[in-house]
Structures are given as C-alpha cells and as structure tokens.
C-alpha cells in the first residue's frame, strides 16, 4: 500500500490560513490502513484545526468527509455538489488522490495534509517499511522475493557492494544489506543458481524515464 506521514500541524495551519470554510477529505484506501488519512484522522485533524483557529480568534468551518477512494472518479464526483460552498479542500489522501481531486474539482484549491512517502508494508502495529519503488520491471522471481531496487540502498543489481558489513548496509547499522537478504533467502530456498545466472542490464525505461507512466488495458477501456 501507499504509506504517508501527516504533515506538521503548523504547516497545515499555514496552508489553510487564508480560508474560513474548508472541506477536510479523507480516503478509505491505503491511507486509512496506514492510519494517516481515514475517518478517524479526518476527525482528529478537523478538531485540531478548529481548536487552533478558535484559540486564535478566527474560527474555521470544517466539513468532514471520507471518500471510498480519492483516486477513482466516481468517488471524487460525490464531492461536487457541495465543494463549491467551501473555499478549499484539505486532502488526507496520497499525492495521487490530491492531484485527482485537483484535476476534477478545478474551481477549488486542493491542499495536501500528508506527505506521501513510499509503497510499503505494515511490519508491525504502527511500523511501516518500504518494499517497492514501482520500477515497472519486476525481478522478484530471480531475487528470492526481495527487491534489490528497494532493499539495496544503492539499488545495485548484481550482488552486494563493498560497504556490506556482517549483513548490514554501510549507510546505517539498522539497515540490513538488501543483497545479504537476497542471498540468504536464495540459499534457504536452494535457488542460488538464480544468483549465479548472468542477467542482462535492467531496462530502466519502465521506471522514471520518459515522463509520467500510463497503462491502457484495451480489454477494459470503454
């Protein structure tokens, strides 16, 4: 899922400073699961904004709403009937959701309340870690299900670098060496032949090269 982090309240307050009536919009997708943008977080942020503004003597009228997803048009459209009654929308969705609101609700300023951080997993309650950089050319079948692009701090593709020490990355002791993880896993699976295979250079054209990416599925388009 997409993982995010709530922006500092001070920053959010300065974003909404010009406004007296706003919508605070959450999303029931990824940001609900990583606890930054669901119903509860909408309520907490809306309360915090109202408190801060009331204490400053400039009350803020906040409408609280949580969409099924902010990255699908049918749910964004549910905001259209009332969004014009407000001066802006503070979105707790990921960057995709914020941009999609901005694209469709063109008359309203759309403000991000969270910093979208990475694609990751819940390692334990309250702890999330990155697992994928969406490079567009997955090689996990050859690396024991561990991504060298994400888990190796240098995104190296052909084994550990000289900075790997006792299974740790040279950037920080608490970061495991991605390639050590890959090799340990391939050994455990009895698939070290995958590591020994020479592989062609990775095709990075599916990654950040060539501008914004797009997928068109002819079997689904109407």
């Amino acid at each position: 899922m997409i993982i995010g982090n709530t922006k500092p309240l001070e920053q959010i307050l300065s974003m909404v400073e010009p406004f007296d009536r706003i919508v605070v919009a959450g999303c029931y997708g990824c940001v609900t699961v990583c606890r930054v943008g669901g119903d509860k977080e909408v309520q907490v942020l809306a309360s915090a904004l109202r408190l801060a503004r009331a204490a400053a003597g400039r009350p803020l009228d906040v409408r609280e709403v949580t969409l099924e997803r902010q990255c699908d048009p049918e749910y964004v459209e549910t905001m259209r009937p009332y969004v014009g009654d407000y001066q802006g929308v503070l979105s707790l969705a990921c960057g995709a959701g914020v941009q999609f609101l901005a694209e469709r609700l063109t008359a309203s300023p759309i403000l991000p309340a969270i910093d979208t951080t990475f694609i990751g997993v819940t390692e334990r309650q309250g702890e999330w870690a990155e697992r994928c950089q969406a490079c567009g050319d997955c090689v996990l079948h050859t690396t024991g299900g561990i991504c060298p692009v994400t888990r190796c701090s240098k995104s190296i593709f052909h084994g550990p670098c000289g900075g790997s020490m006792s299974g740790h990355c040279e950037i920080a002791k608490e970061v495991p060496c991605g390639w050590q993880l890959i090799i340990d896993r391939l050994r455990a699976l009895g698939r070290m032949d995958q590591y020994e295979k020479l592989r062609p250079l990775k095709n990075w054209r599916s990654s950040r090269d060539g501008g914004p990416r797009r997928i068109i599925r002819e079997d689904l388009t109407q």
Binding site: A48, A52, A56
Partner: peptide, 8 residues
C-alpha cells in the same frame, strides 16, 4: 501534543 500545537 495536539493541544500544545494548537495553543490550548
């Protein structure tokens, strides 16, 4: 923490 940040 929120109360501190909001000036309450």
């Amino acid at each position: 923490r929120i109360l501190a940040q909001t000036g309450i």
